[in-house]
Structure formats: structure tokens, C-alpha cells
Write a protein that binds this DNA or RNA. Structure first.
Length: 990
DNA sequence: ACAGAAGCTTA
DNA sequence: GTAAGCTTCTGTT
């Protein structure tokens, strides 16, 4: 085994009991042999091996083993005679299945490991340690809390029944302590199933709080006298010995003298005939079929295996003693075990280090303290020599956490020049390092460089080791910006937190933004120095390099100081609210990915745009002449007010709707209606608007974004801008490049691949409807997606009873509008508008839809109720979107919030899925030996630039990563489908 | 010089 | 009916 290898260890015994209890009983048809657990086990093993191969390029197992318990007694019984004393014999119909499951494991050609005198958990601990020492990663297939003590940077768990990954953040979320404290926690709480005593009256919550306060069990027992609550103090003092024994019992033994080595676990490709032979003997017909398909085996030609069924106890003796869903654990016999096993604390933990409270209580304490502490901007240090900077770097390294912020000449990180940077090592202690400040004013000749500034390259040479040190956590507000800047200066920041993203995960959609100024006001009760007060206002504004260094020190020092204080307040709230994994899996890992995408940019052909611009100008000019002629006068066509006066005043056309300011609306809808009733002018206006829109927004604006050096266009992705979890794109917005009209599409032809490359566009087909089918669990929708049927035609057919064959396009169009309406939180008013039909008719449609798909109504009502109750809704990955105004007494406001709340889990889950895909993609492509570069994201689409020769090899990787992106956290009830195409430009690739 | 409204582009 | 960003016009600062 070597670095990069990945070991899967299946807790076989644990799985048997869990499957037996969780799955419906199943017997073999021919002889009523109970096989429910065997079936569950085979399906799980197959899924694990197959899904890992197909869906998640990041976690393909290279090594695989199933571990079982063995023997009735082990060293734990010697430590504590009552260990597992209250176990009863396993149920009658489970007994024959123990042997069968071992046979199943062999049929899969997976090693089947057990050892006299040790529990499965000890073997798992031992192999996980061996894998770690060899540089590999381990995934333990189990959800047993006894195994959570093993979780660490290279060891994760995976719950096969809930399809959920359990890493450090999940352990912290569930138990309130990091994995390395699980042993102490279990020692306190005990375990009734295994008869581990623990301390009576101490449950997981209290245990976690005590461990927060005292750090570990020994300290707690030594200082138990300090506990405030009288009763609790006494029980802990009285039961200290029980706690110590319990700790021995629950500590897993990671030094079992195993006979098989990791190299014996090398994963073999499935042996189709052998496996099918066993499955046939079990009469698992659907799994037999699936295995036959995947392995390309002709199942009909294979004879069922001879399976030995032993109903007598001695035949399955090994498992007899583990009578409940594996709750076993092992003590620490020698010093060899746990101390060495303990993974380093996560940042989630270090954020709380030293404070003696549960995550929630700590979060509140920090919040209160933060407001009380005054911020003094006069105390910041200005660093002007290398010696002092070196001291600060040392101080930051020692502290292990440092807030970092850059000051630059531009908000656009691709154009910005670094003026200086600030650091903060603890609240109130911050420093600014000016680098290229100049005297005088920005314009004219200005002054020269201010004296006594460290040279940029010298300062960065000192800074680089700090920023690239994985053991020092860097905290920034909007780290992606600083990442792009520092990347451009040759520094790759690793190990960081982002206060903006933490706030976004906690409070997306809640009142108030996630900018530093509003966060400081909200959480610290501090009003920050306004940028315009240091750099000036409007026309008088200068870039930061012309800001007076004293002022700059106050401003930049404050940025770092405030960022660090915010982090101390906000970070503990993540764990307290169960949101650590959203932040750590959906937000933080996307930062470097987007940073790369922004830096790559995309090529835009200037010539195509300028030619197009000329054509649009000509077309618009011609239309203007005709418009003036038809109107009988010249006016500003782009002014809705003036246009309204012409159309509805002078010409006396019938006005349609009004805008909220009382003006006659001149919207495209109104003008289209007028055109339809035979008026010439409105049609011309609509056409004119289209041409001028394309010209001003795209053909004229885009060339201005071409970077002078890279010659490419670099958009900026905002990660914390939407309420649902979507990204947004700006300067320029590359998420709204035209596609609907043929004229508009021509703009897409200007987005081109580099020489020798192709653009690949890969988009999810109907992802939001698929998410809806999953969350609302609609049988017809699930079936239609499983069968690959035209979803809108199916809807139309269900609703109107029209057969799909030969369906009129208008019928399908209406069904499509309704499907979209559902996603948007449908209203009769909105649907009527969309389809230009009467509101009553739209209401009828909706009623009929709910009759056909009652699950949709249940989902909508359920979501509304949840949102009203909690003030937020959740995506399938646990991201929250807040709707504080959903309880408004204003019906308009309330309804709007209800629709948004219905939409958010759907739109947001889809956004989460593509985020996961992007994070994996950035790794998966190079790991597959490919040079494809991910450039853009447009909500359900990813655009890549791929060398010509690699296009064919890239497409399946892209598709596989995207289609499997929900796994393993969520097993969608509907398949995801991705369409990918390559071409020379974006128009043809899409 | 800025802010809001109106309108239009995307998913 | 959901989610965004950009441009133009217009009125206010």
C-alpha cells in the first residue's frame, strides 16, 4: 500500500445486525431460508464497489476487506467480567445468515477477516493505523459510534444505510466533541448495550460539556471538585473508577498482531461467474441481473453454487456473541494504542480551544464578549523593517491562527496591485505592512515611493512560509480575493477559514449581508472605518497606494483585527448549529477551485464581437428611422416614459398594465400584444430593444473586460451573494450570455477555445425537476426519469389524458410551464401570466396537477410549515436559506416568501450538487492524467477548455463526476443525467 | 455622482 | 410563480 491508495474496511458484524433489523424480512422462495441480511449485505457490497468505481473519482478503493467479530471471549471480559453480560442470543432467523454472509464475501473475492480473541473494531483500528502509516486513506463502512474515535485526516466513515459520509465535522456535529475525544466521552456516558458502566447520570451532552471545560478525562477526574453542580460533582467523584474502566473497555486496540497484511487486500475486479453463481443460489434475481450486466456475464449459463447452510450454533459460533448492532469497543492494554492514534485537532476544535463550554454555549459567550470588547484602531503596529516583520511571522506561527488581509489598488483581483498587507494574531493585536505607498496625489506626477517600506519581494519572502504553512490557520474575509492576489505574487495560501463564508452558511437570506462592515456592526457592535474616509470619495478618490500610511495602518489593521474577532465569534456557531459540514464540504473547498477558474479566464474573439457590433448598430439605426417615421417625431426610444407618451398618449393605443410607479408599462409582453393586434410600431420597438440590448450589454461591453496581459476575460464569482447557495457572476456576468434567439447566440460564437483546444460544455438535464422528484418523492416523476421519458410530455399526458405519441406541442408547452411553475412555488396569477390564460383556467390546471401528483402538494405544504416554524428551509445537504419575513402579516410579502421557501430547497440542492461536482472535478481531471481546465459555471453547466487530443478521454470523466456528485452524502432516488459536447466555440458546444 | 425603476439577459 | 447582474433613463444629492 502506498500514498494515494484508499482502503475500504467493512464492519461486517455490525452490518449484519443493522441490516437484519432495518430491512424487511426476506426468505428464499424455494425453501424459506431467511436471507434478508444476506441480501442487504450483498447489495451493499456491490453498490460500494460499483458506485465507488462509477460515481466518485475521488474515492475509488484500491484495497478492500470485510471484518468480522470472532469468539465468545476477549481481553475485555478479563478487564470487566460484566462486559456484554446482558447480551441475549441472536434471533433464530439470523443465525444461519452469519455463515452465508461469510460465503457471500468470498464470492465477491473480498478478504474475510476475523481473529480469535479480538473484536472486529480492534482489527479495523489496526488496519486503519497500518494504512495511515503507509500513507493511504481509509474509509470504514459502518456507523457505529465506537469506531468514531478512529476518524481523522486520513480516516473517514461511511454509513451505508443512510448513505452518509462521517468525517471530523460530522463527529463534532453529532457528539459535540472531535473524534480524539470520543473515547473519553464514551468512558463518561457508558453503553447500556455492551454493559459498559460509564458514570451514571452523565449523557452525551453533559459529557461533551465537561470535556470542553476540562479538556480530557484525566483532568476532569483530577479536578472534579471544581464542578459547580453539587450532584454532578459527587457522582463523578464517586464513579471515577468506573469511568477509568469504561475508558479501557471502549478504547480500540490498534496493535492486534494480524496475520494478513494490507497488500492482501488489493481490490480485485469482480469475478462475474463466481459471484453470479452464489447470487443464483441465494435466488437474488435482480442483483444477479445487475451483476451480469455490469460484468458482461451471461447469467443463464451459470449454475447456482452449492451453498452450505449451517443451522447449528457451532457453525456460526464466531458471531454468536455480538448480539446487537455492534457496539463493541476495546480497552487500551498498552500505551501503544490511543495516544499515537489521536489525530490532530481540527480547526473547528481549535476555534474553541481553551474555552470551557459546549459549542452552543461557547458561541453565545463569545458573541457577548465580542460586543463588550472595545476596538482601538490607534494601537495597531506599522511594520517598516524586515526584523519586525520576521518577529510577527514568528508570533503568528506560534499562535497557530492569524488573520490576514491584503490592501490593493483595485477591487478586481486580476488587475489589482498589492499595496500592503495586515496581520492579526489575537484580538487587538494587529499590524500593517505598507509596501508601495507613494506620497502626493494619485494623478499628475505624484510623489515618489515613501521611505522606509519593505521591498515587496523581501516582505513576500518572509510571508510565504507562513501563508503556505498548513499548520497555521489563516483567517480572511473573502479569502478567494486574497487567494487570487497572492497566487499572482507566487504564493499559494493553504489552511484557511473565511469569515464571509462562515456567515453565509450560518445566515444566508437572514437580514443583513456578509460584508465585513455589516458583520462587524452586527457581531462586534463596531462601526468600521469607511473605505471612502481613507481613500476619498468619488472623483477625488485615490488608489490605496496613495493613502497616508498612518491612516492605512488604522484601516488595514482594523480589517485584520475585526476579521479575527469575527472568526472567534462565528466559527463556534457552525458546530453549534450543525452546519460545520456544509461549510467544510460545500463552501471552503470551492474557494481554491473558483480562484483557479477566475484566474484561467476564457478567450473571447474581439473581431467577432466588433463585426457583430457593427451589424447591430446598422440594424438599430434602420429601425430608429422607421420608429421616428411611425411616431411622427424623434424621441428617446430607450426611455419607457417617453415611449409610453408616444404609444398611449399621442397615438392613443390601448394601454395594458401599469408599473408600480403608475406609468404605463412598455414591457415586451405589452408591446407583443399590441403587435399581435396589428400595430406596426410596437414590433419595431421590441426589435430595436433586442438589438441595442445585445450591443450595449454584450458586444460593446465584453471587449473591455479582456485582460491586457492574459488576453482573456476573467469573471468574478460571488460565493455568498444568493440566498439559495447558487453562485453569481459579475464583471462581466458570464452567466447570462444570450442563447434563446439566433441573434443572441451569435455572441456565444465569440467565446472560443485556445489554439489546439476545444471548449467542452457539460450540463445537467432537468436537474431541478429531478431534485423535486427526489425531495417530494413523486412516483410518476421518479419512474419517468428512471425510464428516460420526456418529463413534460409525461406530465401533460397525466394531466390532460393525451397520449405522448403525437401530442400537440401546445399541450406539452403548457405542461412544461406548469412543471416550472411548481419549482417556483406556483400561483394561479403567475401561471396565468406565463401562459397568457385566465386566472381561473390556471387555477384549474393547478388543481388538476395536485390531484395527479398529491405528493407535490404535501411537499409544498410541508415546506411552508417548516419555514414558518423555523424561519429557514434546508437543501438535501443541510444548507439553510432563511426567510424571516415568511411570518409577515402582509399577504403579498408572506406569499412571496412562501414561494421562495418552496423554491430554495430545489434550487439550492441543485446548486449544492454542482458545487460538489466542481470540487471533485478539479482533482479528478489531473488524477485521470488529463489537462482539461474548468473555466466557467452557469448554474447547471460547466465549461472546460480541453486539448484536442484529450476530448474523448475527458468527456466520460466529466460526466461521471457530475452524475455522481450527490454521492455518497445523498443517494438520489432519481438518476442525474449530464450531456456533454465539444466544439470550437461555446455556441456549438452547448 | 449616485440610486431606483424599468427592462432584458441567463438558469 | 424562483434565483441572479447589467444598462439605460431619470430624478435627486
Amino acid at each position: 500500500m502506498k500514498k494515494g491508495d484508499h482502503l475500504f474496511l467493512v464492519d461486517g458484524s455490525g452490518y449484519i445486525f443493522r441490516a437484519y433489523h432495518a430491512l424487511p424480512p426476506l426468505t428464499r422462495k424455494s425453501d424459506s431460508l431467511p436471507v434478508g441480511a444476506v441480501s442487504g449485505f450483498c447489495n451493499m457490497l456491490w453498490k460500494l464497489m460499483k458506485d465507488a468505481r462509477n460515481t466518485d473519482v475521488g474515492i475509488v478503493p484500491t484495497h478492500f476487506a470485510v471484518i468480522f467479530d470472532h469468539s465468545s471471549r476477549n481481553f475485555r471480559h478479563d478487564l470487566y467480567s460484566e462486559y456484554k453480560a446482558n447480551r441475549s442470543a441472536p434471533p433464530e432467523d439470523l443465525i444461519p445468515q452469519f455463515g452465508l454472509i461469510r460465503q457471500a464475501t468470498r464470492a465477491f473475492e473480498v478478504p474475510c477477516i476475523e481473529m480469535e480473541g479480538f473484536e472486529a473494531d480492534d482489527l479495523i483500528a489496526t488496519y486503519a493505523r497500518m494504512a495511515r502509516e503507509a500513507g493511504g486513506d481509509t474509509t470504514i463502512i459502518s456507523s457505529d459510534k465506537d469506531l468514531m474515535q478512529l476518524v481523522g485526516p486520513s480516516v473517514a466513515m461511511y454509513d451505508p444505510m443512510k448513505d452518509r459520509q462521517i468525517g471530523i465535522p460530522e463527529v463534532v456535529e453529532k457528539w459535540g466533541v472531535p473524534p480524539e475525544k470520543m473515547i473519553d466521552l464514551q468512558a463518561l456516558t457508558g453503553d447500556s448495550v455492551d454493559n459498559v458502566p460509564g458514570v451514571p447520570g452523565i449523557g452525551p451532552k453533559t459529557a461533551a460539556q465537561l470535556l470542553e471545560q476540562f479538556g480530557d478525562l484525566d483532568t476532569l477526574l483530577a479536578r472534579a471538585g471544581e464542578i459547580k453542580q453539587d450532584k454532578r460533582r459527587q457522582t463523578i467523584i464517586d464513579n471515577a473508577d468506573k469511568a477509568r474502566v469504561s475508558r479501557e473497555l471502549v478504547t480500540l486496540k490498534a496493535d492486534v498482531p494480524v496475520s494478513e497484511g494490507l497488500d492482501d487486500f488489493l481490490l480485485q475486479p469482480p469475478n462475474g461467474p463466481k459471484l453470479i453463481s452464489f447470487l443464483k443460489a441465494m435466488e437474488f434475481s435482480s442483483l444477479t441481473r445487475r451483476v451480469a450486466e455490469t460484468t458482461g456475464t451471461e447469467a443463464a449459463e451459470i449454475e447456482p453454487a452449492t451453498v452450505v447452510v449451517q443451522r447449528k450454533e457451532e457453525a456460526h459460533g464466531p458471531d454468536l456473541d455480538i448480539a446487537a448492532p455492534a457496539q463493541a469497543s476495546a480497552p487500551q492494554t498498552a500505551a501503544a494504542t490511543t495516544a499515537a492514534e489521536t489525530p490532530p485537532a481540527t480547526e473547528a476544535v481549535s476555534a474553541r480551544a481553551g474555552d470551557g463550554l459546549s459549542p452552543a454555549a461557547l458561541a453565545d459567550t463569545r458573541a457577548h464578549a465580542a460586543v463588550a470588547e472595545k476596538i482601538d484602531t490607534d494601537r495597531y503596529v506599522c511594520i517598516r523593517d524586515l526584523r519586525t516583520l520576521a518577529d510577527w511571522v514568528a508570533e503568528a506561527t506560534e499562535a497557530g491562527v492569524v488573520a490576514f488581509d491584503t490592501e490593493t489598488t483595485s477591487l478586481d483581483p486580476m488587475l489589482a496591485e498589492l499595496c500592503g498587507f495586515s496581520l492579526a494574531t489575537r484580538p487587538g493585536r494587529a499590524a500593517y505592512v505598507p509596501l508601495i505607498h507613494k506620497s502626493g496625489r494619485g494623478d499628475l506626477l505624484g510623489g515618489g515611493l515613501v521611505e522606509n517600506q519593505i521591498a515587496v519581494r523581501d516582505a513576500l519572502a518572509l510571508l510565504k512560509p507562513l501563508l503556505e504553512d498548513p499548520s497555521v490557520l489563516k483567517v480572511a474575509q473573502n479569502m478567494k480575493y486574497d487567494l487570487v492576489i497572492m497566487n499572482r505574487y507566487g504564493i499559494d495560501i493553504v489552511s484557511y477559514d473565511d469569515t464571509m463564508l462562515i456567515s453565509y452558511v450560518l445566515d444566508a437570506g437572514a437580514n443583513g449581508g456578509h460584508g465585513m462592515d455589516s458583520l462587524a456592526e452586527r457581531w462586534l457592535g463596531h462601526k468600521t472605518i469607511a473605505y471612502k474616509d481613507v481613500a476619498g470619495n468619488g472623483k477625488a478618490a485615490t488608489t490605496f497606494d496613495f493613502v497616508d500610511i498612518d491612516k492605512a495602518t488604522r484601516y488595514a489593521g482594523e480589517d485584520a483585527d475585526v476579521t479575527l474577532r469575527l472568526w472567534r465569534v462565528l466559527k463556534p456557531r457552525l458546530a453549534a448549529k450543525g452546519l460545520a459540514s456544509v461549510y467544510e464540504r460545500l463552501e471552503r473547498p470551492l474557494v481554491p477551485v473558483l480562484s483557479q477558474m477566475e484566474q484561467r479566464g476564457i478567450s473571447v474573439d474581439r473581431q467577432i464581437l466588433s463585426r457583430l457590433s457593427g451589424e447591430l448598430a446598422q440594424g438599430a439605426a434602420a429601425l430608429e428611422d422607421e420608429i421616428y417615421r411611425l411616431a411622427g417625431e424623434r424621441f428617446t426610444i430607450g426611455s419607457p416614459k417617453q415611449l409610453g407618451d408616444i404609444l398611449f398618449g399621442k397615438m392613443g393605443l390601448p394601454g395594458g398594465s401599469k408599473t408600480k410607479t403608475g406609468q404605463w408599462s412598455t414591457s415586451a409582453q405589452v408591446l407583443e400584444d399590441l403587435a399581435a393586434s396589428g400595430h406596426e410600431l410596437p414590433r419595431k420597438i421590441v426589435d430595436w430593444r433586442q438589438l441595442t440590448k445585445l450591443k450595449s450589454t454584450y458586444t460593446d461591453a465584453l471587449p473591455g473586460y479582456i485582460h491586457p496581459e492574459t488576453k482573456r476575460v476573467h469573471t468574478n464569482y460571488a460565493m455568498a451573494a444568493t440566498s439559495t447557495g447558487r453562485l453569481s457572476s459579475s464583471e462581466p456576468n458570464l452567466q447570462n450570455i444570450p442563447i434563446r434567439t439566433t441573434e443572441g447566440r451569435r455572441i456565444r460564437t465569440a467565446f472560443i477555445a485556445d489554439k489546439g483546444h476545444k471548449l467542452v460544455s457539460a450540463d445537467y438535464s432537468q436537474i431541478e425537476l429531478r431534485v423535486l422528484a427526489h425531495v417530494a418523492d413523486i412516483p410518476q416523476l421518479r419512474q419517468a426519469f428512471a425510464d428516460g421519458i420526456d418529463i413534460h410530455a409525461m406530465t401533460a399526458s397525466e394531466m390532460f389524458g393525451v397520449p405522448v405519441q403525437g401530442m400537440p406541442s401546445e399541450v406539452r408547452r403548457r405542461a412544461k410551464a406548469i412543471n416550472f411553475g411548481i419549482i417556483y412555488g406556483i400561483s394561479a396569477f403567475g401561471l396565468a401570466n406565463q401562459l397568457s390564460i385566465a386566472r381561473e383556467e390556471a387555477g384549474d390546471y393547478i388543481r388538476r396537477y395536485f390531484e395527479r401528483f398529491p405528493g407535490i402538494r404535501d411537499y409544498m405544504d410541508g415546506t411552508k410549515a417548516f419555514a414558518r416554524e423555523n424561519g429557514y428551509v434546508e437543501t438535501i445537504f443541510g444548507r439553510r436559506a432563511h426567510y424571516p419575513e415568511i411570518r409577515s402579516s402582509n399577504p403579498q410579502v408572506r406569499s412571496f416568501n412562501e414561494r421562495a421557501a418552496i423554491n430554495a430547497p430545489i434550487q439550492g440542492s441543485a446548486a449544492d450538487i454542482i458545487r460538489r461536482a466542481m470540487v471533485r472535478m478539479e482533482k479528478a481531471l489531473p488524477e485521470a492524467g488529463l489537462n482539461a481546465r474548468m473555466l466557467l459555471q452557469v448554474h447547471d453547466e460547466l465549461i472546460f477548455e480541453v486539448p484536442d487530443a484529450e476530448v474523448e478521454a475527458t468527456l466520460p470523466v466529466v460526466r461521471t463526476v457530475m452524475e455522481g456528485a450527490a454521492m455518497p452524502a445523498v443517494a438520489l432516488k432519481v438518476p442525474l443525467q449530464v450531456e456533454a459536447r465539444a466544439a470550437d466555440n461555446w455556441d456549438e458546444a452547448h
